[in-house]
């Protein structure tokens, strides 16, 4: 009986069906154990499951959602025009009119933070999209290609990335011309894909010779078909954590670059470019110009980090032997 099943639906799905039968049978067994001991047994089972669950970063998710919603819908509640330079009130301390004070160009910081958050988050997401795309394609090509090509590709990318990140960005920026949101995302994206590419490559190498990949190739499936339908489902869970972490480091890079004067110019407001004026703030002792944008930046980054590490299962899932 079971042999026929294998022939009909293939080994993969047959084993799935078999395991479903097993589960059904187990469920029936549980249901059969009615009464006090039966419910007790079920309760114990449930406790086990609850213990296995990873801690969910509820607080981080909520905070991040609030920040994102606030940034997207900032027009609804910000009191001032973030671009308007109120020169009569430059570098004003936080007060009732300017909640977070104004910067040295007279712009209202509270409005700027919400307005600029959009750009920061957008750059984080776009840069991650760029780096993930490059990483997945590069990793898959490298993993599927013959050994010498694989070694060559990996070595080449290592060399390219051995140019210090900062210098690479400066050079690329110079090549691409005046910085805007897209060029910055692109530059950050193409400097931060190596980690993911390595993981994709390793995973691809492990499954490149499995039957379903070969079968798909024989049936004429192209590179992207195989990548999307057969490889991606295998590596997506292991790169998820790194992808989320890439969002974080992209936002971090953007702020660092803008601060150093090689990222976004002053008139495109983001959390990083708001800190460009920090040296002037240091001279005039305007602490609010440094503190508030930085605080928003850090809160967002911490939230993203927490969400990212919740996606990754740590070593703590098993009992310690010690």
């Amino acid at each position: 009986m079971e042999d026929k099943w294998f022939e009909l639906v293939g080994r993969e799905s047959a084993s799935r069906v078999l395991s479903e039968w097993e589960e059904d049978r187990a469920g029936e067994r549980d249901r059969a154990r009615s009464g006090f001991w039966g419910s007790f047994w079920q309760k114990i089972n449930r406790i086990k499951i609850r213990k296995k669950k990873r801690n969910r970063p509820v607080l981080s998710l909520c905070l991040l959602l609030i920040v994102m919603a606030g940034c997207l819908g900032c027009e609804l509640f910000i009191p001032k025009d973030p671009l308007y330079m109120d020169l009569a009130n430059y570098a004003h301390e936080p007060c009732r009119e300017f909640w977070f004070g104004t910067d040295t160009m007279g712009r209202d910081l509270f409005s700027m933070i919400w307005y600029g958050g959009r750009i920061s988050l957008l750059i984080g997401l776009t840069a991650t999209a760029v780096s993930t795309l490059i990483a997945v394609i590069f990793g898959a090509v490298s993993g599927l290609s013959p050994r010498w090509l694989d070694a060559l590709l990996m070595r080449l990318s290592e060399i390219l990335l051995s140019v210090p990140g900062l210098l690479l960005v400066v050079l690329l920026q110079a090549v691409l011309g005046k910085a805007n949101v897209w060029s910055i995302s692109f530059v950050i994206g193409i400097t931060g894909w190596m980690g993911i590419a390595k993981v994709v490559r390793t995973e691809t190498k492990q499954i490149r010779n499995s039957e379903y990949v070969t079968a798909s190739k024989c049936m004429g499936g192209g590179f992207f078909h195989v990548l999307w339908n057969h490889l991606a489902p295998n590596f997506i869970s292991s790169i998820m954590f790194m992808v989320v972490m890439n969002v974080r480091s992209a936002i971090l890079s953007e702020s660092t670059l803008s601060f150093m004067g090689i990222g976004l110019p002053l008139d495109i407001i983001s959390w990083g470019s708001m800190l460009t004026l920090a040296d002037k703030a240091l001279l005039s002792g305007a602490w609010w110009m440094i503190l508030f944008p930085g605080a928003f930046l850090i809160v967002t980054l911490v939230c993203i980090t927490n969400i990212g590490s919740a996606l990754k299962d740590g070593a703590g899932s098993r009992e310690s032997n010690l």
């Binding site: 780096s131 400097t191 931060g192 390595k198």
Partner: peptide, 8 residues
Amino acid sequence: SEVSGLGG
């Protein structure tokens, strides 16, 4: 795993 970003 590599750290991405400006680090290196």
